[in-house]
Amino acid sequence: MDISKVISEIKKIEGTDVETGLEYCASDEEIYVETVQDFLEDDRGSAVQEAFTQNDIDSYHINAHALKNLCYTLGLNELGDKAKELDDAAKIKDFEYIKAHNEELMSMYKDYTSRLKTIIEE
């Protein structure tokens, strides 16, 4: 795997700030790519969706919060912002807001993970 090429391709994804992600990874591109791989393997989005399906607001809050933090750590700011909105809603137990916006979060999550997987697997 050509780490520099992977980084270059991730930078092309709208809504990403790889430089910030690299800062969280001690400016080490290899650690950053490994962290992206871990993010993809962890599949926090499935945990968020499962909590939503189960109407488990506490679990939803925990998983949306974790997704938000992971996104910001990787510089996936647009996705992190959407996860933050839903994390904030879960924090105040606003399930109506979550019902209205969960699908948008899941769609964004699937889009980002699909694009990242394509880059990582090249």
Rank of each mutant, 00 (worst) to 15 (best):
T16C: 05
N102W: 04
T20M: 12
V48L: 06
E103T: 15
Q37D: 13
I92F: 07
Y72K: 10
L40I: 08
G45D: 09
I3S: 02
E41F: 00
I92D: 01
K12G: 04
S46V: 08
T73V: 07
V6H: 03
M1D: 10
I120E: 08
Q49S: 13
I119A: 03
D56H: 00
S114T: 15
N55P: 04
H61M: 13
D88N: 12
V33G: 01
N102Q: 14
N69Y: 08
Y24Q: 11
I31G: 00
S107G: 10
R115Y: 03
K68E: 12
M1R: 11
I3C: 02
V36H: 02
H61K: 10
A66I: 14
V6L: 09
H65E: 09
I31W: 03
E121H: 10
K91R: 15
K91Y: 14
F95M: 12
C71Q: 06
I10Y: 02
K99Y: 02
K110V: 05
Y109W: 12
A89N: 06
F52K: 00
L105F: 12
L40Y: 05
V48C: 12
E19W: 01
D43S: 10
K11G: 02
L76R: 04
L105W: 06
A51S: 15
G21T: 04
A100L: 13
D58Q: 14
R44F: 11
C71Y: 02
